[in-house]
Simulated scan of single mutants.
Amino acid sequence: MADYPTHPDQMQAGWLAETLGFPADSLRGFSVRPVGTGQMCDSYRLALDWAQGVVDAPATIIAKCPSHDAASREVARTLGGYILEVKWYQTLAHEVGVPRPHCHFARIEEDGVSFLLLLGDLAPAAQGDQLRGAGPLEINLAIDAAAELHAPLWNSPRLAGIDWLQRDTRPIVRALFPSYFAQFRERYAQRLDPECLALGDGLVRKLDAYLAYEPSATTLQHGDLRVDNILFAPDQSACWVVDWQTLSIGAGARDLAYLIGTSISDPAERAALDRPAFDRWTNRLAALGVATDIDALWQDYRLGALSGYFMAVFASMSVERTERGDEMFAVMAERPARQAIALRSLDLL
């Protein structure tokens, strides 16, 4: 059992004050309300009522906790999602340049489920809207943030020594994806057109090749880099990346293809952006000191277009079902399907 609270209902004002670096009696109380649309965790904004005279204390913070939904918690346990996010904040976030929230507290238990994160509140920055999609300024900010994540450990031998990133989930994915896609196809038969669903049939047939593909370069890969997982400043001058439960060692180009494929609602606009977005990303990597093989990375990008569709299928069958979630996963499948078809991604397998 954790010796710290794993939900705001279990928190005492004194514990929270001391955890944030202040005397126990300096926090008179706090209020709680849910925030965000994440389906793997529950997140809350804590408004802190400090005693008079307390200086440099945050007015609000974000508490991130295990999901209230048992199925989502089990998926997180099986795939190690909570471990990945906590370990990211504990060990890597401070040395990787990607913009992200400040972490006040990060602990997890050996069960891989009981955990707590206390993060800086970036309000008035606001979460992107997956259903609406992203505009040019948001996309450019996100591309630059992706490069700042990917550059520091690009092809680094250090990656092999990060033991908590060595979990191989491919056997689980190989076992579950075909049945998940059958359920996905049935659920979305009236929502997605036949061409989009046929892409899934092809992915099932080529699943072994997809899972065995070795990218041309490896680095830290966010794994779910879409606008729902990015906070944007009101004037679109900055962004911050959140939700690190799918962090892995993999292809940075996959993150980029996933971002572009899931974020642009109009297929023609997305098709016109694929290569310029890729060029912006590789140019930013070069500015950060990374030598790249452009042709090989473009192939990684083309194959990465399948990742948004893949995630939509897997996640939609793994987490608590909601009305917004149903439409979000439909969009997450539909947009990358158009991208993968245009880029002939399956032909690479």
Rank of each mutant, 00 (worst) to 15 (best):
W298N: 02
A51G: 09
D69T: 05
R226W: 15
L20C: 10
R28K: 13
T78R: 11
P34M: 03
H222I: 03
T169F: 05
R324L: 14
T262V: 10
F177G: 00
N140W: 09
G81T: 00
M317S: 14
I260R: 00
E148Y: 08
L288W: 02
N229L: 00
R132Y: 07
A286G: 14
W281C: 00
V98Y: 01
L285F: 05
D295K: 11
G223E: 00
E334R: 14
D293R: 10
S318W: 05
Y44L: 06
R284N: 13
E269L: 13
D168H: 07
R270G: 01
G120Y: 03
L211K: 02
A287D: 12
V55I: 04
L176E: 15
R167E: 13
A2T: 03
G81M: 13
R302I: 02
W15S: 14
D208K: 08
C196V: 03
L220M: 09
I139R: 05
W240L: 12
D347S: 13
L203N: 00
G261N: 02
L231G: 00
T262N: 10
T218H: 08
P276G: 10
A175G: 15
R335N: 05
A315K: 05
D168S: 08
S72K: 01
G325D: 06
W154P: 02
L153Y: 12
L273W: 14
L117D: 00
G223L: 01
A146E: 09
Q10V: 06
R275S: 11
S307K: 09
V96L: 11
D193M: 05
L20P: 03
P171T: 08
T169Q: 15
F115M: 09
S43G: 15
E18W: 11
L285C: 14
P66I: 01
A2E: 03
Q10K: 07
W15P: 05
R174A: 15
D255E: 08
P267F: 01
L259Y: 01
L247I: 13
V98G: 07
A238N: 09
P194Y: 13
I230D: 02
P8F: 08
N155H: 11
W50I: 05
I264V: 13
I108K: 04
S31F: 06
A160K: 13
R226A: 15
E323D: 15
E214F: 11
L192H: 07
G21T: 03
V204Y: 04
D295S: 11
Q183F: 04
F329A: 02
A233K: 02
G202L: 14
A286F: 10
A271C: 06
S265V: 09
L92W: 01
P194K: 13
A277F: 05
V242Y: 04
A312H: 01
G325V: 07
C239T: 04
A151E: 01
D69S: 14
G112V: 04
L131I: 12
T246H: 12
R270Y: 07
A312Q: 08
A198V: 04
R344C: 09
Q221Y: 13
D208E: 15
T169Y: 09
G21Q: 07
P66V: 02
P234I: 12
D243Y: 09
M328V: 10
V313I: 11
A209G: 15
S316R: 06
M328N: 10
W244D: 02
L207V: 13
V35C: 03
A257G: 06
H102D: 14
P34F: 12
S307F: 13
T19A: 10
L46W: 00
